[in-house]
Amino acid sequence: MTTMNMIQAINSAHVTLMEKDPKVVVFGEDVGYFGGVFRATEGLQQKFGVTRCFDAPIAEAGIVAAAIGMGVYGMRPLIEIQFADYIYPAMDQLTSEAARIRYRSGGEFLAPITVRTPYGGGIFGGQTHSQSPEALFAHVVGLKVVIPSTPYDAKGLLIASVEDDDPVIFLEPKRLYTGPFEGHSTDGVKTWAGHPAGEVPDGHYIVPLGKANVVREGSAMTVLCYGTMVHVCLAAARETGIDCEVVDLRSITPLDVDTILTSVNKTGRCLIVHEATLTAGFGAELAAIVQQECFYNLEAPIDRVTGWDTPYPHVFEWEYFPGPARVGAAMKKMMEA
């Protein structure tokens, strides 16, 4: 075990994967010599050589397409898109290609690629360094969508993603890279040191895809969340004193429906929290499943707290960000219902 922040844990996952399997190859913009703009691939080129970790041209469609080609050859590309906001040029390669290759070839060809990309706000990045596009990918059958919330999960989920034969979009909550951010904009920087999930095994382990984590047990209501919002929801539960059961989904495709339903059937209430915009967000899918499956156990309408339906505005970072105040208010309202 070593104390790691999320970047170090992701870096450690790369090392573990690359040591174990010579077919794991890493590339993306600035990931080679420099080690990535967030330093996630630092030292990999020096350790494994330039043909296993290298800089790519600034062409996201090209990066994903090349990864698919390598995957078809039989390699396991682990690529980085510098910011999730810049993944859109690769949309065709992801939705029409990576997601469909297994199906359209009758299961003969695979695209076993993992696309890592930092997402979410909280760093004053404005609208092109803050987006949360998970719902776009969840809507594409054939893609898996994984979102860690701690260093421990980040490493275990990343290893599981790369070892999975299907294409995985691995969204990294960049605001959590250096510490468990609870959503108070005025909070000083808190590090992962001292957090139980900041203790990360040095070697190989996996956190399976499709297995949610009940990070706080409770009886009053179920809170479904992932990524940065896990810490925001925990803070809101603490601050309101409401006995919430906080469920970190960890992957939205595949989705751990059993854990969700067991929890909601127990608590009778369900609040869904994500940073992405509301309309047609992943919360809508969760709400539909919960109301269909738990309807007769619900004691209050399902509610969602999300980013507003606007682009992420630079100066209004904290007005946009669904912080503990907004989440807490929704929790209280739900208890009154």
Partner: peptide, 21 residues
Amino acid sequence: GRQLPVMYSSKEAGFFTISGN
């Protein structure tokens, strides 16, 4: 206040809104 600094825009100046992409 919507845009990251340096992403200027001015229709009057014939200067198209700069994209982060």
